[in-house]
Amino acid sequence: MPKNLVNITLGAVIEEVEMILESYPKYPYQQAFSHSGGRQDLIAYVLSRVPNKYMAIDSGESANQTVQFRCSSEQLMQIENLIHTGIGDLMHRYPKVDYRLLEQVKSAARVGG
């Protein structure tokens, strides 16, 4: 049976990104990373700076059910530090957007539309 290659580090990074972003203020951090592009940039930022682990699974199996990757405490700390660093670095790269104003415009469009 054919096998698929799965990056098992990805799940751990996504889980940590979710938890850490929740600890940041909604504006501007959570809003900046709420759209999938910003969040994907942050995940890629971290993945490109940590050793990634892979597993070959049967093509009929679901990666979510099969793969339970647990990082060592040292790896987890490295991932957490990179997430915090990545948030700061990426916030400086994004254009300065007033997310509160953007939300007001969206709300007005929903009410008026």
Rank of each mutant, 00 (worst) to 15 (best):
M1E: 11
M1K: 13
P2I: 08
K3C: 08
N4Q: 15
L5T: 12
V6M: 00
N7M: 00
I8W: 05
T9P: 03
T9G: 01
L10K: 14
G11E: 11
I14E: 15
V17P: 02
V17R: 01
L21G: 00
S23D: 13
S23P: 03
Y24S: 01
Y24K: 07
Y24C: 02
Y27Q: 00
Y27R: 04
Y29H: 07
A32P: 03
A32D: 00
F33D: 02
S34L: 07
H35V: 08
H35Y: 11
G37R: 11
G38Y: 05
G38D: 05
Q40M: 11
L42S: 03
L42E: 00
L42Y: 04
L42T: 01
I43E: 02
I43V: 14
I43W: 00
I43C: 04
A44R: 12
Y45F: 12
V46C: 02
V46P: 00
L47I: 05
L47D: 03
V50Y: 03
N52H: 00
N52C: 07
Y54G: 05
Y54T: 07
Y54P: 05
M55K: 15
A56I: 07
D58F: 10
D58L: 13
D58Q: 13
D58P: 09
G60Y: 12
E61Y: 09
S62R: 10
N64W: 09
N64P: 00
Q65M: 14
Q65V: 14
T66R: 15
Q68N: 15
C71F: 12
S72G: 09
S72Y: 08
Q75I: 03
L76E: 13
L76C: 01
L76D: 10
M77N: 15
M77C: 13
M77R: 15
E80K: 15
N81D: 08
L82S: 10
I83H: 02
T85P: 04
G88Q: 12
D89P: 03
M91P: 01
H92I: 14
R93P: 02
Y94I: 05
Y94V: 04
Y94R: 08
P95M: 05
K96G: 07
V97E: 00
Y99L: 07
R100I: 13
R100T: 08
R100C: 05
E103N: 09
E103Q: 08
Q104H: 10
V105W: 07
K106W: 01
K106S: 07
K106L: 06
A108R: 10
A109Q: 10
V111H: 03
G112V: 14
G112K: 11
